[in-house]
């Protein structure tokens, strides 16, 4: 949540219906409408098992979406989030399975390696002045290649780390509250989203990211060390990709080195559907999470209705264009 929603309008804060809250509201309404539509017309949709499936499917894209939201708000783009996720999963596999180290080290290793690679992308962009699109296109291939090299192009299984399932398929919360079968991976996504939201709205990191994305030159001329904050932004993005890597490999109980391509586009789509502006300076984490849910509800719902898999891809494309069009219309009104 942004601070607009938390504080009462009476204190002189802008009203509730800012463009950003509007965009989130629109995304939320679309999500509810989709849920209602599929519940009404697809008989097997509104079942507990199917809902868990939808959430499972959302977790990875949601976390990657949050990662890329940071970068997009800062006025950049990161095409490497998908293969970066794979590389970090492979790193976890090497640490846990090949080196036999304890789980916490594996978790830290995955996140740290993502942050490190992200920082390299950020440095290339900030110091070498290479456009983010190109720099992260390069990083996408570098991460993909490294994942294959490090793993020997073979999956790494986590059979020696029995607790690895805690990172995704298991549902710890069902032990506390019986009947609530939310997988841990989804809970992790929500925790990541909450922390990310706090970082973006309450800390100097977030404030800098918004300033960079809104007007980098003005920020520079205000004496802000733009390069350093840019590098940090990409490092945060990479670190969150590490979390996605842990979730996806936990669900598959293996690090699959060939996985990852295409995930970056879904993540960017989730952010865009959720109202994050590719021009930078605008966006919310909650919007991105809603965007990720819209995508997986759509995919799942169409599948349950028996629509061909291929058509679902077409519909997703249409949704992205419509979402951006709504964004443009709302912004003109504001």
């Amino acid at each position: 949540m942004t601070d607009t929603a938390v504080q009462p309008a009476a204190s002189g804060k802008p009203g509730f219906f800012t463009t950003q809250t509007m965009q989130k509201a629109v995304a939320f309404v679309v999500l509810v409408a989709l849920l209602a539509f599929f519940s009404a017309f697809a008989s097997n949709f509104a079942t507990g098992a199917n809902m868990v499936g939808i959430m499972q499917a959302t977790a990875v894209n949601g976390v990657l979406g949050v990662a890329v939201t940071f970068v997009i708000i800062s006025g950049g783009i990161d095409l490497s989030v998908g293969t970066m996720m794979t590389l970090t999963a492979v790193m976890a596999g090497i640490i846990l399975t090949n080196l036999g180290m304890p789980l916490p080290i594996g978790i830290l290793g995955a996140i740290a390696s993502g942050a490190f690679m992200g920082a390299i992308s950020g440095a290339v962009i900030a110091k070498l002045k290479i456009p983010p699109f190109i720099a992260t296109l390069g990083m996408m291939q570098i991460a993909r290649g490294l994942a294959l090299v490090f793993s020997g192009a073979k999956p790494i299984y986590f059979n020696d780390t029995p607790n690895y399932g805690l990172l995704s398929p298991e549902s710890s919360i069902s032990k506390l509250i019986p009947g609530v079968e939310i997988p841990n991976g989804v809970m992790i996504m929500f925790i990541v989203a909450i922390i990310a939201s706090i970082v973006l709205n309450r800390t100097i990191i977030g404030r800098m990211i918004f300033a960079l994305g809104s007007n980098e030159e003005a920020a520079r001329l205000s004496g802000i060390n733009v390069d350093r904050w840019k590098i940090l932004t990409y490092a945060i993005c990479g670190g969150i990709c590490g979390i996605a890597g842990l979730i996806v490999s936990s669900r598959l109980n293996s690090a699959q080195p060939a996985l990852g391509l295409g995930y970056e586009l879904d993540a960017i789509a989730a952010a865009v559907i959720g109202g994050t502006s590719l021009a930078g300076g605008r966006g919310t984490v909650i919007g991105t999470i809603i965007g990720a849910f819209i995508m997986s509800v759509l995919t799942n719902g169409l599948r349950v209705m028996g629509v061909l898999e291929e058509w679902k891809i077409v519909v997703t494309g249409v949704i992205i264009i419509v979402a951006v069009f709504i964004d443009i219309v709302l912004r003109k009104k504001a």
Binding site: R207, A211, S214, N215, E217, A218, L221, R282
Partner: peptide, 13 residues
Amino acid sequence: KHFGLVTGMSVRD
């Protein structure tokens, strides 16, 4: 507008 202000941000910021 280009070099002095971040126009999309508030007076406070």
